[in-house]
Nucleic acid binder design. Structure first.
Length: 724
DNA sequence: AGCTAATTGATA
DNA sequence: ATCAATTAGCTA
């Protein structure tokens, strides 16, 4: 008897390799085919994979593939990509496949929309309700059945009875086209020389049809988007699909409209807020090739493109590209990998490139395009550092005289002012004047932040809240609690007393009313219905403020004191972004940075506009300490699923092995725990159950003694980035 | 994922 | 000793 034909099927579960299934007679299967298979008591969707079937699985254990979906197969490049990402991130391959198969219902045939129209037959009796329905259909255009009754303000039985009588007939509507193909030649931009040259370079890289990485490094408003749109246009002309990644928060209507103006059609979108129906349709459209261009958040990188020819990563330095749960990856880096595997160009774009990307460009691994001048009428704002030691704010206030004066001038000239402070709430610390008690979070080691509008004390780390008491819980003193330091609410209060006639808007992520309200507020700002905007980080990204003439950074030093080795870089990026909000639409504009350390390299770089000095310094700092992307022994990088755990590990490490040198804590996306030893870069995946003595474990690991008891798993391998 | 078996820690 | 809670193992 012939041995049974078998296939490997990778399942979207936490399993590293495919399982072997019997291939039923009459069902031909090839790698990439999407299938349904039995697993235990149920059936799940998987994909036929390239691994040879496992012959060691006994014939009696083999179960047959149930069904092959009529969906385009996952092409070889995405299968390799899944394997690569899984290997690199030390994640089971099935978990990565799960990100690709994120829209399982997309495989089922699309539910048809049932529509109704008039037949000409008259109803047996004319009632008011029936007439309202017929009125809606009077022009002969069909209506979707589901919405008709509601639109006519009648119950659905009215519609049903009209159908039964033959007055209305039903038929199925073809699904509306998702998006028409964007037209690469819809609206050619007008470029200056620098932009023209940049666009030509990008078009050439698309024409090469080979893997390359280009870093577009250009100040805010230099037209980076318009320039990389030319790469996109060229990709479309060549008949390939294109993907633009944006940090989720920057994926705004503003951006989609810019795309539409250039290409004549709205692009397909992909992000977490997408409605399930739309999600399925986009997934299917991408797989079938109907969708030619996608604008998406990081997870769009795992869509099943069949002829992807370009990935653009906009704001490539943005930390939102890091996924820190489940499969932990940085979409910027994985985009480069996808380009490498697929043999197509990748474009990274930023006004403040990450140090890693700058180093890659400097070392010739990436091409670099620099755009220095601002577009059209836009001019960079004049930036001033306000030395708070020389011109301090009045006692109990936070806006220094030079900034207040500039605000007065700006408002008098009908310009808009943005005050930026990256701190939600009223005050970051509350203490008792009588006994010195400080309000601390019971779960974390952080201070509770007062939110005065809500009357609460909130932990910004874990979300713990408690009502703000009137008297001190320790010494019972009355009216003794004082707020220390400013948050946006407090700045808003100061603005109110100083500029009682100005129209204020406070923008903070904890705003009441959610996304809807936020959208309205941004709309109001655009229409000039606000004079002073007080905002946290979220004003830095995605949204344009066309009337903005003055930016005041309330505390430019905030964030610099952090122990994070990237603190300087992050602060630089944030300040560049915030000050860059001003003057984008033209005209004179100014930015003021309130600081106690105007000579600090970050502040000086922003104030002087000398970015190169800053980069040179930052890169050198990393080089001498051997931090990434330079791979010398630097100590140990600790990273874990959440910051608190990572800090816990780091503390344990410092105690356990002070001789290892610097211990640095990174965010979760740098996990699995990276360890630099000798001349090789190693990655270490460290997983331990709850109460294992981490300190003892790390000590023994570092001294190469056998691991202590307890089920600690260690997996070490050479960093595959060396392959690129 | 969703299920069971094994292990752990807390409690009596 | 016993229970509930957590964690590890497995699906072909």
């Amino acid at each position: 008897m012939e041995p049974a034909r078998t296939v490997s099927v990778l399942l979207p579960l936490a399993v590293d390799g495919p399982y072997t299934y019997r291939q039923p007679a009459g069902l031909d299967l090839a790698p990439g085919d999407i299938v349904r298979v039995p697993l235990g008591p149920r059936e799940i969707i998987g994909a036929v994979w390239d691994d040879p079937p496992d012959a060691s699985v006994g014939h009696n254990r083999l179960r047959p593939v149930s069904h092959r979906y009529d969906s385009p197969p996952l092409d070889e490049t995405i299968r390799k990509f899944v394997d690569w990402v899984a290997h690199y991130t030390l994640t089971p391959r099935g978990m990565v496949l799960r990100m690709v198969l994120r829209a399982p219902d997309a495989l089922e045939p699309e539910r048809e929309t049932i529509a109704v129209r008039r037949t000409g037959v008259l109803p047996d009796r004319a009632t008011a309700a029936r007439q309202r329905v017929l009125d809606l259909l009077a022009d002969g255009a069909p209506w979707p059945k589901s919405g008709l009754a509601a639109a006519a303000g009648v119950s659905s039985s009215v519609v049903t009875s009209l159908i039964e009588q033959g007055v209305l007939e039903t038929f199925s509507l073809p699904p509306p086209p998702l998006t028409a193909a964007p037209d690469p030649d819809y609206a050619r931009p007008v470029f200056d020389d620098g932009q023209d040259e940049a666009a030509a370079t990008l078009r050439a890289s698309v024409d090469e049809g080979a893997f390359s990485v280009t870093l577009i490094d250009g100040v805010t408003g230099s037209g980076k988007t318009e320039v990389y749109f030319e790469a996109l246009a060229e990709t479309l002309r060549k008949g390939r699909q294109a993907l633009v990644l944006l940090p989720e928060i920057a994926l705004t209507n503003d951006f989609l409209e810019r795309f539409t103006r250039r290409f004549g059609e709205r692009p397909a979108e992909w992000h977490s807020e997408l409605a399930p129906r739309m999600r399925e349709r986009v997934w299917r459209g991408v797989a079938s090739g109907e969708v030619r261009a996608v604008i998406g958040a990081r997870s769009a990188l795992f869509l099943p493109f069949r002829e992807l020819g370009l990935v653009v990563v906009d704001e490539e330095h943005d930390t939102a590209y890091k996924q820190d749960e489940g499969v932990i990856y940085n979409a910027r880096d994985m985009a480069v990998v996808r380009g490498h595997i697929g043999g197509f160009p990748v474009v990274l774009s930023s006004a403040t490139p990450s140090i890693e990307s700058r180093v890659n460009a400097d070392q010739g691994r990436y091409r670099r395009i620099v755009l220095t001048s601002r577009y059209a009428a836009a001019k960079l704002p004049d930036i001033h550092a306000v030395d708070l030691r020389v011109t301090p704010p009045e006692k109990g206030h936070f806006l220094a005289p030079p900034l207040v004066a500039a605000m007065e001038e700006t408002i008098a000239a009908k310009g808009q002012v943005l005050l930026f402070l990256n701190r939600r709430g009223y005050a970051p610390l509350t203490l008792c004047r009588a006994c010195g008690h400080r309000f601390q979070c019971p779960n974390c080691s952080t201070w509770l932040v007062e939110h005065r509008f809500r009357g609460q004390l909130v932990c910004h780390h874990c979300g713990h809240t408690e009502p703000r008491p009137d008297r001190c819980p320790v010494c019972d003193a009355e009216d003794s609690l004082v707020a220390c330091g400013p948050g946006v609410e407090r700045i808003a209060e100061e603005v109110e007393t100083r500029f009682p006639d100005a129209r204020r808007i406070v923008l903070s992520s904890d705003i009441l009313g959610g996304v809807k309200r936020m959208r309205l507020e941004f709309e109001a700002i655009r229409k000039g219905e606000a004079d002073i905007i007080i905002g946290t980080q979220l004003v830095a990204k995605g949204h344009n403020f066309p009337l903005l003439a003055l930016v005041g950074v309330v505390d430019a030093d905030l964030g610099l004191a952090h122990g994070d080795p990237r603190a300087a870089e992050r602060t630089f990026q944030l300040l560049a972004q915030v000050t860059g909000r001003a003057g984008r639409a033209g005209g004179e504009s100014r930015a003021f940075l309130q600081t106690y350390a105007p000579e600090h390299p970050v502040i000086a770089a922003i104030a002087s506009g000398d970015r190169e000095a800053f980069y040179a310094r930052e890169i050198e700092a990393r080089r001498v300490s051997g931090l990434p992307p330079f791979g010398r022994l630097a100590g140990i990088i600790v990273s874990a699923a959440d910051r608190a755990t990572a800090f816990g590990y780091a503390t344990a490490l410092r105690r356990a092995a002070p001789e290892t040198g610097p211990v640095m804590v990174l965010g979760p996306s740098e996990a699995p725990l990276a360890v630099l030893r000798g001349r090789h870069r190693f990655r270490l995946l460290l997983q331990a159950p709850r109460n294992v003595d981490m300190q003892a474990f790390l000590r023994s690991w570092l001294t190469s003694a056998p691991p202590p008891r307890g089920s600690i798993k260690v997996q070490v391998d050479i960093d595959p980035q060396s392959f690129m």
